[in-house]
């Protein structure tokens, strides 16, 4: 396996940070902290580059007259106004917070509300597309949890609601067990991914 300088640096830095988590040596701890600070600074720089990328993509879309370029015009105008307001008045000033509270939050809340409709339609599509016992179990559990989350027309059913009801029973035993099983798999997958990068097998940095 050919190892380039970038790969060697990535492996060395990754190895030191990993050891810093497990071995309580002052030098190792200091190096880990410094490397993580570098990573945070680089992430912030990446954010700025990402914003330039966002601006450029929409600028090109407008310049080329591509489909949906009106939305790109709105993005560019909003981008420009927000940047100017925040740069001029500061991020916590009244005008900046006004943009956040009266434009961004309502739009995002509306999108969140849309999710309800999308999920209901998705459940109907799921029954049509992938009809199986698992699908029925999934939808049945979802409906049961939904009904059990609030009193039905002001009436609490002892079998469904309350600390000993069916809803509590499902969320405490099968849901917790299932969630832990899934997280177990995710954790092992994450460790394997990290180790592949650490041994230079995966190189997401173009090395």
């Amino acid at each position: 396996m050919k190892i380039s300088i970038s790969v060697a640096i990535a492996i060395a830095f990754g190895g030191i940070v990993l050891l810093g988590y497990f071995i309580d040596a002052p030098l190792l701890r200091t190096m880990t902290d410094v490397f993580l600070q570098y990573a945070a600074i680089l992430a912030a720089v990446a954010l700025i580059i990402g914003l330039v990328n966002l601006f450029t993509v929409h600028w090109r879309k407008v310049a080329r007259g591509e489909k949906g370029n009106l939305y790109s015009v709105i993005v560019l105008i909003s981008f420009g106004i927000t940047t100017l307001v925040v740069a001029f008045f500061g991020p916590t000033a009244d005008w900046s917070m006004w943009i956040f509270n009266y434009i961004q939050i309502p739009i995002e809340t509306s999108l969140m509300a849309l999710l309800v409709v999308i999920l209901i339609f998705a459940s109907i599509r799921l029954v049509r597309r992938r009809m199986s016992w698992f699908t029925l179990l999934f939808i049945g559990t979802a409906v049961l949890m939904l009904l059990g989350s609030a009193p039905l027309f002001g009436v609490e059913l002892p079998l469904l609601h309350g600390p000993n009801g069916l809803r509590a029973l499902i969320s405490q035993i099968p849901v917790t067990a299932g969630a832990r099983g899934l997280l177990f798999g995710v954790a092992l997958g994450t460790i394997a991914t990290g180790l592949r990068i650490l041994i230079g097998s995966d190189r997401p940095y173009g090395g």
């Binding site: 998705a122 599509r125 798999g185 092992l188 997958g189 991914t193």
Partner: peptide, 29 residues
């Protein structure tokens, strides 16, 4: 699970490299 045509649940996502022939390290992991 409800919305995607082909959902990957749990660690199935992490097996993507092995199934897309990304190299022996993926099968090994």
């Amino acid at each position: 699970y409800a919305t995607a045509e082909e959902p990957l649940i749990g660690e199935e996502l992490y097996a993507a490299g092995a199934y897309l022939n990304a190299g022996p390290a993926h099968q090994a992991s």
